[in-house]
Amino acid sequence: METKTILLVEDNADDEALTFRALMKNNISNQLVVARDGAEALDYLFATGKYSGRDVSLGPQVVLLDLNLPKVSGLEVLRQLRANERTKLLPVVILTSSNEDQDRLQGYDSGANSYVRKPVDFNQFVESVRQLGLYWLILNEQPPARR
């Protein structure tokens, strides 16, 4: 059976725990892979570095991407993703603290599919994660695999 992996790119351990909790509360049981900086995210996506040899055909189904990241920034991860033939259609949701105009603009400009601001109120965050899961994991149809 095909497992729909979620890649969470998040450097803050608290946010990682809260996101995991929010996913659990919404009964989203997909495998959650966490990359703690931009370079690790790129390694996972391109099956390089510590992820060399990974079966890239297994996904991820969606990337939840923070913007402020160590090493390689979230926007740079996004640009490299979009420049790669295999990952250029991969759904990417920017999940961040910022609602600055410039971040939103640059996020969409670099090819984000969605931009969600993490609310402080945990209950609101759980609701956001529920809607994201429903949309990107269930409602949204993936682009067909290239032959």
């Binding site: 608290d14 946010d15 809260l18 909790r21 402020n68 961040t96 603290s97 600055e100 402080v120 209950n123």
Partner: peptide
């Protein structure tokens, strides 16, 4: 400064609120 406030001051608040709720 504003950018930093927008990003960095909110993150601990999410932890405070989220783990209190937990």
């Amino acid at each position: 400064f504003s950018y930093s406030v927008s990003h960095d001051l909110r993150t601990p608040l999410r932890s405070i609120d989220g783990f209190s709720q937990a």
